[in-house]
Computed example of a mutant assay.
Amino acid sequence: MRTDALQRRETILRTARELFAQYGANVAMDTIAERSNVGIGTLYRNFAARPELVEEVTVTTLQEILDAAHLARENLAQEPRAWSKFLEQLVRLDLGALSEAFGGALPATLNERVLTVQRECAQAVNRVLEQAKDQQLVRRDLNGVELVTAIGAATRPLPRAFKNQTPQLQERLVQIMLDGFKA
């Protein structure tokens, strides 16, 4: 794939993820194309249908978790702050908003490509979590599923009334949750 075409595809994926997190997986394909600064034809040349785009955003997000876990593992021995950076990266991925958006958009049976990346991701998260436990950076009774589920729950969109009344509430709740992970 040409460099410019690859950059457009990456822009579409990044924009789609942001829009899915903000508005749900049923956001109009026209809106995704417009916000990506591409024509609708370019969007459909890259992703023939919405399920294909949703799947690719899912794989890309899982790959980002996997990359973050690998980086944390590499740096954790020399830099204990690598654990906090890893958690911050997971929070920035808007896992809660995406899981809510994809609840009905992903097929009931995931294809092998998604399942493979999902398994690799779970293993990598568990490895970095065990390393953090060994360095007494995180409570010993926390497991990988609980970690990712808690971050997902804390990053789910809040009802508008809460957001309007207390604009920093979600950030505060995330920080309380992250503090609760500490050893």
Rank of each mutant, 00 (worst) to 15 (best):
M1Y: 00
L6A: 14
Q7R: 14
R9T: 13
T11Q: 05
I12E: 06
A16Y: 07
F20A: 09
F20C: 01
Q22A: 15
G24A: 06
G24S: 09
N26I: 01
A28M: 04
D30K: 08
I32Y: 07
A33D: 04
S36Q: 08
L43E: 00
R45M: 09
N46K: 00
F47E: 04
A48G: 12
P51R: 09
P51Y: 04
L53N: 04
V54N: 12
E55Q: 10
E56G: 00
T58L: 14
V59G: 06
L62M: 11
L66E: 06
L66K: 01
D67N: 13
A68T: 02
A69I: 06
H70A: 05
H70D: 09
H70V: 06
E74K: 09
A77R: 12
Q78N: 14
Q78T: 12
E79N: 15
P80V: 10
P80I: 04
S84I: 07
F86A: 02
F86I: 02
Q89Y: 01
L95E: 00
A97W: 03
L98F: 00
S99C: 03
A101L: 03
G103K: 08
G104P: 11
G104I: 02
A105L: 05
A105W: 04
P107L: 04
T109Q: 13
E112Y: 00
V117L: 10
C121R: 08
C121Q: 15
Q123L: 13
V128F: 01
L129I: 02
L129V: 01
E130T: 11
E130V: 07
Q131W: 09
D134P: 01
Q135Y: 10
Q136K: 15
L137K: 00
L137E: 13
R139G: 13
D141F: 02
L142V: 14
N143L: 04
V148R: 06
A153V: 10
T155S: 14
R156Q: 08
P157E: 15
A161L: 11
A161Q: 14
N164Q: 15
Q165R: 10
L169A: 11
E171S: 15
V174M: 05
Q175M: 13
Q175N: 14
I176V: 14
L178G: 11
L178Y: 08
D179H: 08
G180E: 07
G180I: 12
F181N: 02
F181Y: 03
K182A: 07
